[in-house]
Design a protein around this nucleic acid. Sequence first.
DNA 1: GTCTATAGTCCGATAGAC
DNA 2: GTCTATCGGACTATAGAC
Lengths: 196, 196
Amino acid sequence: MAALESSLTAPCVERLLDAAERLVADRGAAHLTLDAVAAEAGVSKGGLLYHFPSKLALLQGMVKRHIEDLDARASSGAGARWAGADEPPARYRVAARLEASLAKSSAHRAVGAAMLAAAAGDPSLLEPCRARYRQMLDEVTELDLDFEEAAILHLAVDGLMISELLHLSPFSADERERVVGAILSRVMKGKQTHDR
Amino acid sequence: MAALESSLTAPCVERLLDAAERLVADRGAAHLTLDAVAAEAGVSKGGLLYHFPSKLALLQGMVKRHIEDLDARASSGAGARWAGADEPPARYRVAARLEASLAKSSAHRAVGAAMLAAAAGDPSLLEPCRARYRQMLDEVTELDLDFEEAAILHLAVDGLMISELLHLSPFSADERERVVGAILSRVMKGKQTHDR
DNA sequence: GTCTATAGTCCGATAGAC
DNA sequence: GTCTATCGGACTATAGAC
């Protein structure tokens, strides 16, 4: 669809959200205070509260950008894998979306930091994520995998994501790579033609 | 091993931990305050602080009982499935342990409420869980499953557990049953002789 | 052992200067 | 638009009565 990074967010707002995610990932959701976010972002509390008039607004912003990030990463991933045609096959879109959830890179800690902070503050903030999860599951199911296999792969991605966010992952770097590869190749099944 | 419910905890302490878990599961980790726990348990704040001298101690107690609960449920589950001999085969122990993590019953919400609260407060509190996770993974791997399959099943259990704790689970009751059944039968593989 | 009362700290939000 | 200063409230933890 649109190539816009994040629909309506200014670069300044991005810095604030980055700081918030960093805090949650590093020190836990309990340390996500307005003072700490402002200090981490290099602004004052008043400056922070201008963009997010309340802490609830900040949490909502974190959840919103989390979803947008996932979409953007999935799109670019599917595009890279299926360069040329306009519409990549469903299998490629799903694989890219799962891979986006598991990306180890810079924004990796951001993946669930927003969810964790929101859940700690007010579980109802996760409402936007619920529909999204169901949609992802449906997409996996629509492949020629049977429902149980699709659900297990979907859940495994969730489990790895959360485990790593909580620093609970029991895998070595090598083991993790093998597991991620296995999940993706199962999604791709007979058609393991991705360039990896 | 021992049939004792929880090693050294008095019944009064159990009530306090129950109240704390209920609060986290229902209203989020941010609402886990000493006042709220005391009120939920029907005692006064001083009474609570007699048993848990600090909030940190309360969180540690929650994590500790969470692990003990899992052990107890797994043992009884494996026992029921392999009545007779003293030592159930590894396959049964693993299946029982996974099933314990996914139990929908009374203590279900307790499964991860402690972890969520601990992670929100201080991520280092989850240290005792990390070794435990690796141990569970090793047990799954030691079956005649290959490593990737074992890891995926292990992660799927985690993912389902966390999804349900955060009220993010996209499954209907029927779908959930099918998925859990599929996970367990994969662990049991060729020997699907459990009485279900 | 359990409760009340209170001390001390930290956080979220507002008001107003620049 | 960003900052400083500050209010009011909620929280953890302690001291001491019963």
